[in-house]
Each structure stands twice: as C-alpha cells, then as structure tokens.
C-alpha cells in the first residue's frame, strides 16, 4: 500500500473529479490518495465518484481555503 497526493487546486468541477479518476487509474488496489482542491463542489463530487466506483472515502474535510479528500482505491 502506497500513499500518493494529488494537487487539484484552482480547478473547477468536474476537473478535480477527472484528475482523481485519472490518477486512481494508475494506482493499485489498497493504495491511498490524498486530493487537495479549492472548489467546494469537490466535497460532494469526489465522494460521489468514489461511491459509484466502489472506492473508500477515508476522510473528507473542508477548511477556509481547501477541501481535502483521502481515498483508498478499491480492492
């Protein structure tokens, strides 16, 4: 299991989802990906994309400036 990060800041919906989707396609089952976004829409869209595709959302949080979502790639 490896930990990866993805910078999707200053991208607007659905680009953070597309970037996440493309990054996850390169990873192995069990790998963890931490995505950082500035579009608050990512807080609903990336978890929705994960639910559709069976990936686990380990953490999703928003502060004043950024949204951080941590995903574990489905087995």
């Amino acid at each position: 299991m490896n930990h990866y990060t993805l910078d999707a800041r200053n991208s607007l919906c659905p680009l953070p989802v597309i970037k996440t989707q493309n990054k996850v396609a390169e990873l192995q089952a069990g790998d963890v990906l931490e995505v950082t976004c500035t579009d608050p829409g990512a807080l609903s869209d990336i978890p929705a994309w994960c639910r559709i595709n069976g990936h686990l959302v380990m953490r999703a949080e928003e502060n004043d400036e950024e949204v951080i979502i941590v995903i574990q790639v489905a087995y």
């Binding site: 989707q21 829409g41 929705a48 994309w49 595709n53």
Partner: peptide, 29 residues
C-alpha cells in the same frame, strides 16, 4: 456557484455523477 460566495448555499453537486448514482451505474467523465 462554486466561485461566488452569494451562491454558497446552492447545491454544488455534479448532476451527471448524481444521475449515475441514482441509476446505480458507473460513470466515466
């Protein structure tokens, strides 16, 4: 809506993802 503060309370969901979830299908963006 994602940019403008005055639209903060409007839903920011992606409707294509939402549709796919309603249908229970995969969605490739």
């Amino acid at each position: 809506h994602a940019i403008r503060k005055q639209d903060k309370d409007k839903p920011k969901r992606n409707n294509a993802l939402w549709s796919a979830e309603q249908l229970g299908i995969k969605l490739h963006i």
